[in-house]
């Protein structure tokens, strides 16, 4: 591990939904600057909810999340948007605007800096060039002027990565980024994600349910079972016994 500088501190985080289901039951851990942290766990373990709490897409029930010195809980309006510019997010279903071109989608990452010009979709030439450069680094330079709905799934997710990188975020949250992709595209997308985070020195939190991908790319791994942290350690510590424990509960449920 590079540095032991804490970027995100999560303490006793609890989240329950209106129906009464408790998704997170007191989660605490730290995220260090510059690392790639993978969160593993069965589906329904609370991985998505955890990530969505970090950038305030879901309001937490109790506890605290501090991102680079700022408490997320209770942030509203402009301050919440400001926090979100520091936190990029990548979704399982890509969530890029299908009817816009690839370059426009990448430029969406800059919206928070634009105000009314952003409403009209008018960006500076510098930002357009930067968007092109990042898309080229993700090997999408031939696709920049295409409409996003003409791309394959893997390409769409790379556009989503470009959009997140355009934000110049301190931390990148990736929620099951390859769950909708075939194995070939999956390892390619994770490779790009890993490479560009290293190059840009961006801290990343990636949730995955495939253990082998986690082992390949993680600096550190956290295991989540039914809303509780049940594993914390390096990829080498995630042995068969630990995996058994992580997924044991799920099998019992079924």
């Amino acid at each position: 591990m590079k540095q032991k500088d804490v970027l995100i501190k999560i303490s006793d985080l609890k989240k329950s939904f209106p129906g009464g289901t408790e998704a997170l039951k007191g989660v605490s851990f730290d995220v260090y600057r510059g690392e790639l942290l993978v969160i593993v766990g069965a589906s329904g373990a609370g991985k998505s909810t955890l990530l969505r709490c970090i950038n305030g897409l879901s309001a937490i029930s109790s506890g605290s999340i501090v991102v680079d010195g700022i408490e997320v809980n209770g942030l509203k309006g402009k301050k919440l948007r400001q926090l979100r510019t520091d936190v990029g997010m990548i979704f399982q279903s890509f969530n890029i605007v299908n009817r816009k071109r690839v370059i426009d989608n990448a430029l969406h990452g800059r919206l928070a800096y634009y105000g009314l010009r952003g409403v009209l979709g008018l960006y500076s030439f510098e930002d357009k060039k930067k968007a092109f450069e990042i898309l080229a680094r993700l090997d999408l330079e031939k696709q920049v002027a295409k409409r996003a709905d003409q791309l394959s799934g893997g390409q769409k997710q790379r556009v989503a990565i470009a959009r997140a990188i355009m934000q110049e975020p301190k931390v990148l949250l990736a929620d099951e980024p390859v769950a909708s992709l075939d194995p070939g595209a999956s390892s390619k997308v994770l490779g790009y994600l890993h490479k560009i985070c290293q190059e840009e020195d961006i801290t990343a939190i990636v949730s995955l349910h495939q253990i082998d991908y986690a082992r390949n790319y993680a600096d550190r791994i956290i295991g989540l079972t039914e809303g509780v942290v049940t594993f914390e350690g390096g990829p080498e510590d995630l042995d068969d016994e630990a995996i058994q424990e992580l997924y044991f509960n799920e099998e019992e449920e079924e």
Binding site: G88, V97, H108, G118, A160, R163, Q167
Partner: peptide
Amino acid sequence: GQVEALKAVGAS
């Protein structure tokens, strides 16, 4: 999803 993604970049 597309709406949420733009909220997540801090768009107004």
